[in-house]
């Protein structure tokens, strides 16, 4: 596993937050995923060695929590809320708009490698439905028009890279 030095030092720091090392499981998974973009196959063994566990203990956790992914995704992660309050105000249409904009399907990397569009469950922002998270940013009241606008923005940012 090839982790950045700052990730490694964050890992060592966060382990000190807990009386038992195992508690650092989710923090470590987050840090590795933030560094590499996903959790490569050797993650379980690496963390197991770090926290004095068995690899299965890590794999069980990775597969339980939907935010952890074992495969790379597009450069941007578009997470559309699927749950009731958002759906009542057009969340499914918003999601379809993103899929169409990037010629992709749920859970897949778009052909240009730019995004992965996913449905997620309630993001605790139901009062401004429909909501969408793009990477770490929450976008509120994302109707189809706003979805197009956000897609344009993603593409514009991609061009600048």
């Amino acid at each position: 596993m090839n982790l950045k030095p700052e990730t490694l030092s964050k890992i060592d720091e966060v382990i000190t937050h807990y009386p038992t090392k195992r508690s650092a499981m989710l923090p470590l998974l987050h840090l590795i995923q933030e560094d590499i973009g996903y959790l490569p196959e050797d993650t379980s063994e690496w963390i197991a060695a770090k926290l004095d566990l068995q690899p299965i203990n890590v794999l069980e956790v990775i597969t339980f929590y939907p935010m952890f992914r074992q495969k790379p995704i597009g450069r941007r992660h578009v997470k559309v809320c699927r749950t009731l309050s958002c759906a009542l105000l057009g969340g499914y249409k918003t999601c379809a708009a993103f899929e169409k904009e990037f010629h992709t399907h749920l859970g897949e990397v778009s052909p240009d490698g730019e995004v992965t569009v996913d449905f997620v469950e309630c993001l605790a922002s139901c009062g401004t439905a429909p909501v969408v998270m793009i990477d770490d940013e929450l976008h509120e009241k994302v109707d189809v028009a706003k979805a197009k606008q956000l897609s344009d923005q993603i593409r514009a940012e991609a061009k600048q890279r």
Binding site: Q54, I56, N57, L59, E60, T63, F64
Partner: peptide, 8 residues
């Protein structure tokens, strides 16, 4: 410890 549940 080699057995476990994956997925949910």
């Amino acid at each position: 410890d080699v057995l476990g549940f994956v997925d949910r």
